[in-house]
């Protein structure tokens, strides 16, 4: 990793430039400064986020209490707010995205790790990294001009035959947003699952082969079987990403503040917390209106943080248990 010659040079340079006998003032303050800044920056930042959001949303919290979450009407003119519609939109788009992506992601990871020859794996990884690196606004642009026309032309008519509510589907809908999300979370899902597959000892695979298992059976019973916690972590982290995704969703979901017409109203326009913020935050006038939007941001922060921390803790626990072997 480190180039030895460089290291030797830098060692000599530092020796030449440092007076070994005396500790300079900078040296004395180095460790305390690192503690202060290194630990201080993340702590101050997280405090800043929480404090700002709680302070700004306090008005709405005291005005509505829990009623905010059960009410469906969103009426800035009457100054009456209910956010059920947006919570529904956020959860439903993310869950549908996971339902689409998870089985697909496991299959893709299987192909990438168990079936693709190792020398091709790098190329595969690069293309997934590329997919992860595309800015979300470009997913949205593509969604508006390519995906939605395609869904309207080729998918919804066929799906409508099997599932009648789709016949009335318009392009910009919760379902379209879910599909865009499912594409966007694929790289994170696959890369974590592949990492998990990588930790499965070869000898376990061989033991299963030795019992007369086919490659698929080895994958199913041993590889996927032993990586279930990793797959759970990947799902949580992907869910965290989906819950907070803003631009691509905003551009294809239809941005309707009307409450869902039924429990399963996924083929009509909707709104997520983040798309509502993107649409209305900069134009919000009135303290209560703005404060409600802040409270939504706080809800989103708490929601994604819980999901992510769970995922992070599982990953951490896994790393420790494999590190101990």
């Amino acid at each position: 990793m480190a180039n030895e010659k460089n290291t030797a040079n830098s060692l000599l340079n530092s020796l030449a430039s440092s007076d070994l006998s005396a500790k300079s003032l900078a040296d004395k303050w180095f460790a305390p400064a690192m503690y202060l800044l290194g630990a201080g920056i993340p702590l101050v930042l997280s405090f800043l986020y929480l404090f700002t959001l709680i302070k700004e949303s306090w008005l709405a919290i005291t005005a509505f209490g829990l009623r905010l979450f059960t009410q469906t009407s969103w009426d800035p003119i009457q100054n009456n707010y209910g956010v059920f519609t947006f919570i529904y939109g956020t959860l439903v788009t993310s869950f549908i995205a996971i339902i689409i992506s998870l089985p697909l992601g496991i299959m893709v990871a299987t192909f990438v790790y168990e079936y693709v020859p190792p020398n091709l794996r790098v190329t595969v990884r690069n293309s997934l990294d590329l997919l992860a690196g595309i800015p979300s606004v470009i997913y949205g642009l593509w969604g508006i001009f390519v995906l939605i026309p395609f869904l309207k032309r080729s998918v919804y008519p066929g799906l409508g035959v099997v599932f009648p509510p789709v016949q009335s589907a318009i392009g910009n809908s919760i379902f379209s947003a879910s599909i865009v999300l499912s594409i966007m979370i694929m790289p994170i899902l696959v890369s974590i699952i592949v990492e998990g597959f990588d930790t499965v000892p070869q000898s376990l695979r061989e033991a299963m082969y030795g019992l007369g298992a086919t490659r698929w059976e080895v994958t199913k019973h041993v590889v996927v079987g032993t990586t279930k916690p990793t797959i759970a972590a990947a799902t949580l982290l992907a869910l965290g990403r989906a819950l907070g995704e803003t631009m691509a969703v905003t551009m294809v979901i239809g941005n309707s503040n009307n409450p869902p017409s039924s429990f399963f109203a996924i083929f009509e326009p909707g709104q997520t917390i983040s798309s509502l913020l993107a649409n209305e935050f900069s134009e919000a006038s009135g303290a209560l209106y703005l404060s409600t939007l802040f409270e939504l941001a706080l809800v989103l922060l708490v929601l994604t943080s819980i999901v992510n921390i769970l995922g992070i803790l599982i990953v951490k626990r896994l790393k420790q248990s494999y590190g101990g072997q």
Binding site: P42, L48, Y49, T52, L243, E245, F281, T304, N308
Partner: peptide, 13 residues
């Protein structure tokens, strides 16, 4: 966790 905070929240803050 901060890495995965939805970026729109940073905008709001």
């Amino acid at each position: 966790t901060m890495v995965s905070i939805p970026t729109i929240i940073t905008g709001v803050v």
